[in-house]
Simulated scan of single mutants.
Amino acid sequence: GYGQPGSPQHLYAEYAVRGMPTSVPLVMAKGESAVVQEMLAGRISACFCSWAAVQTHVRSGALRILGVTGPVRSPLSPQVPTLQETGMEGYGALAWYGVMAPAKTPRAIVARLATELDSVTSERGVQAQLMAAGLTPVRDSPDAFATAIRSESVQWQVILRQAGPRSEP
């Protein structure tokens, strides 16, 4: 299951079932907290959710993380394998947040913004707050970030076009 159409969790679920040899039904709930409640009630057997949505239930033992979507294990739960490690060959997807500027912003200003952002995100307190929210700061150059956005846009468009309609619980 997943919580909302077009969300990262929806995309990850579509990406996962696309590589499975048999058809796996995907169920859409009305938001991430709703899909967690469906899991807790036993009406669905697995879901794609953010760490923030499940962390209390994982800590209490009510839910168990089967795998993380990223290409490497998460520092939030290093004992949990990636989906690729569990047998989903080639799987690797991460949600990300980025800082952007208007397209015609001078390169010198973009470079300065990147430097200042690096400085802020390297502060111990900021890193602790990001980790508590389930986020891991990652640094890329502005050009690499732009390339990644273009590449991922194409990848997710293809996956969504191939996805069929989903049912709600």
Rank of each mutant, 00 (worst) to 15 (best):
M100T: 10
L11W: 03
E123P: 09
L117G: 00
R107A: 14
T147G: 04
T121Q: 12
C49G: 13
S60A: 06
M131W: 11
Q84L: 12
P81L: 03
Y97H: 15
S60Q: 06
L63W: 03
L135E: 08
P81H: 04
V54C: 13
V58I: 13
V35E: 11
L94Y: 09
K30W: 06
V80G: 01
D118V: 00
S167K: 13
G31S: 02
P81A: 04
T82D: 07
C47L: 11
P75E: 04
A101I: 01
E38V: 08
T147E: 09
V99C: 02
T56Y: 07
L117Q: 01
L94G: 09
T105E: 02
V58H: 11
S7Y: 03
H57P: 05
L130H: 03
G134I: 09
E116T: 04
L160F: 06
R59N: 04
L135H: 04
G1Y: 03
V36K: 01
A146L: 12
A13M: 08
V80D: 02
A62N: 15
S119D: 13
P137N: 00
T147W: 01
M39L: 14
V80W: 01
W156D: 08
R73S: 11
E89Y: 12
P137T: 01
V58C: 08
P106A: 03
A53V: 03
G42T: 04
A41M: 02
V80Y: 00
P5Q: 03
R124V: 13
A16N: 11
Y12F: 11
F48N: 00
S60F: 03
T86I: 05
S167L: 12
G87M: 11
M28Q: 07
F48T: 04
F48M: 05
Q129W: 10
